[in-house]
Simulated assay, not measured.
Amino acid sequence: MCFRISFSSNMDVKTARPYFFGDIGFWSERTEVHKAAYCGQAFELQNLIQSGASVNIVAVDSITPLHEAAIRGQKECVRLLLDAGAQVDARNVDGSTPLCEACSAGSLDCVRLLLEYGAKVNPALTSRTTSPLHEACMGGNAECVKLVLAKGASLEAYDLYNGTPLHVACANQQLECVRVLLNAGAKVNAARLHETALHHAAKASNAEMIELLVEFGANVYAKDKHEKRPGDYTQPTSSSALLLQLYESDPLSLQQLSRIALRTVLGTRALQVVTKLDLPGRIIRYLCYQ
Rank of each mutant, 00 (worst) to 15 (best):
V188H: 03
P280L: 00
T31Q: 13
L160I: 15
L198G: 08
Y161H: 14
A124F: 03
F3W: 11
I283S: 00
V33E: 07
M11V: 12
L198I: 04
S6K: 13
N189C: 07
S9H: 15
L198E: 08
I49W: 02
A102H: 10
Q87N: 08
H167R: 11
A136C: 03
G118S: 04
V180H: 05
I71M: 06
E101T: 00
A16D: 15
S205Q: 01
L244C: 09
C144S: 15
G85A: 04
T15Y: 08
Y233I: 06
V13E: 13
M138N: 06
A42R: 05
G106K: 12
L254G: 02
F43I: 11
N189Q: 03
I63L: 11
M1R: 15
K35H: 11
N219H: 10
P98Y: 00
P230T: 08
V78Q: 09
L114H: 01
L133F: 10
T164D: 05
D89R: 05
H167E: 10
D250W: 05
R91D: 06
N47P: 02
I71Y: 00
Q173D: 07
L262E: 03
A42P: 04
V145Y: 13
V178G: 02
L244F: 00
L246D: 03
K203R: 08
S239Q: 14
S104F: 13
Q272W: 09
R179G: 08
L80A: 10
G217M: 09
L81C: 06
L147G: 09
A102G: 14
Y117K: 10
F43Y: 02
Y221K: 07
K276A: 12
H34W: 10
